[in-house]
Design a protein around this nucleic acid. Sequence first.
RNA 1: UGGGGAUUGGUGUAAUGGUAGCACGACUGACUCUGAAUCAGUUAGUAUAGGUUCGAAUCCUAUAUCCCCAGCCA
Length: 572
Amino acid sequence: MTTAESTSPESTPEASPRDFIRTIIAEERAAGRHPDGVVTRFPPEPNGYLHIGHAKSICLNFGIASENTPGRCHLRFDDTNPTKEDVEYEAAIEEDIRWLGFDWGTHLHYASEYFDRLYEDACELIRRGKAYVDSLSAEEIRDYRGTLKEPGRNSPHRDRTVEENLDLFARMRAGEFPDGAHVLRAKIDMASPNMNMRDPALYRIRRVPHHRTGDAWPIYPMYDYAHCLSDAYEGITHSLCTLEFEDHRPLYDWILDELQTPTHPRQIEFARLNVSYTVTSKRKLLALVEEGHVSGWDDPRMNTIRGLRRRGFTPASVRRFCERIGVAKRDGVVDWALLEHTLREELNVTAPRMMGVLRPLKVVIENYPEDQSEELEAINNPEDPAAGTRMVPFGRELYIEQGDFMEDPPRKFFRLGPGREVRLRYAYFITCERVIKNDAGAVVELRCTYDPATRGGSAPDGRKVKGTLHWVAADAALPAEVRLYDRLFTEENPGGGGRDFRDAINPDSLEVISDARVEPALGDARAGVAYQFERLGYFCLDAVDASPEHLVFNRTVTLRDSWAKHAKGGAK
RNA sequence: UGGGGAUUGGUGUAAUGGUAGCACGACUGACUCUGAAUCAGUUAGUAUAGGUUCGAAUCCUAUAUCCCCAGCCA
């Protein structure tokens, strides 16, 4: 249903395409192509968990499909190698994609569901004289392939007759041969400058059960053969993949052309996502898990979708991030800070404010009546009046942040110090009168006075204080464990320059604070909900380790902190 | 001269022969009951060398640099 393209100037149907792929598609559609809609696919191999890099591809494929009605995006598991894959990963992958906010409807597919069809098409290729069974060993095939600069040589088995090939291939399929005895190869050109065209393998013998097809097959198709045909079978119009497959496109097209498939999807390549201070390679991610550098695939420091989720990132912030980074063909590294930015951007307007003290320093208000306590009203979210207010208990004994007091403060320090007056947020102005230290000379308690007239946080006489501190009432506050996460690597490109990425692992990527105190309202915190601990950052209840008796909060991301920068100076 | 791809501020990304723009970051300042947010501003770019043109990030020529390819992995 091609819409009549109006040439009238007022017809600006949609925003212009955001990237070169969308531009290509828009041009094709303007030319009347894809009348039945644009069909894309996300084709993970079920051999690992999804990470932030996959999120880019997911957002791209599902995004383009939804923008090009009546488009659709399939989820297809590329399960052609049973020695590496497992159902365990499939459920996790589906869950992660759904969490990100995408839906493939009824289009859940598996390359393995096409095994019969793929086999028939392979026979057809043989009949057309375009494929042959080779009986060279793997080493011999490698040897015959030549090198990047030298052409390969034809296999001695290259000229077997169609009948002979058909018979051998049928017997491969029947399970007559051991692994490695034969391989089905495309007959293309052993002298091609493109290594992928030097008679690539199409099928190999693998006498292992497949997690979906069981013992039905002793032979399995290779990626290059299965992928393009799966795309064609499903009516995919655009097969979007990463740059390293650019060299495979001639083969992708060759197979579809030789088989004269009814449709011929267009493969378009784009640059994979790299994010600074992280790794996005299955091998490295797996090593982090298996070698115990992290607690698992969902460790909040991992850039896996599950890791980000447990850490407290939101689906919308990840999607927004993927929009911001764009899609192009240039290899690059995106700042991790951009992901943090999109997260803060969202959480700032959605997250309820709370108060929590990470490193408690006791404060006694000497002129506050013994045995008195009260509740003070606090705003839940200044960015969202509809979020309302809550009551926070206050008393004679409080905890403030150790870092909010300095015995000998520098000029620009706005917080508490001997003789200084500050505001306790939503409570009172207090003045530090005395400092109590332990035998080691460490400050363990502050004796302060408060001004009853400043109840609520403002002074009737109009006097100002420079600093406002967060606090909790000593007896009403809840104990909590808080996990402070920092980047997992100390280098922008871990393992760059040929070094081992393990050498760049940040030994301080996790700091556990076991005796933090949080305001009582946090006792009702639920996993998956982000809270802003005022002046500290965004936190969420840990979905795995927290319980009603033992609160555990993950710090998702800190608030921007211009004081910390100023104070640290040139520190790293 | 194996083949393929890429090159725009610190980072990512627009501009397809006509004002090099946007975002992140960094830095200033204003405001502030979060040193947050918000607001205002500053910073900084077409890899190099030629050429075509009234005019070049864009077209042409050469050069440089980086990435990918020699799995019976995807």
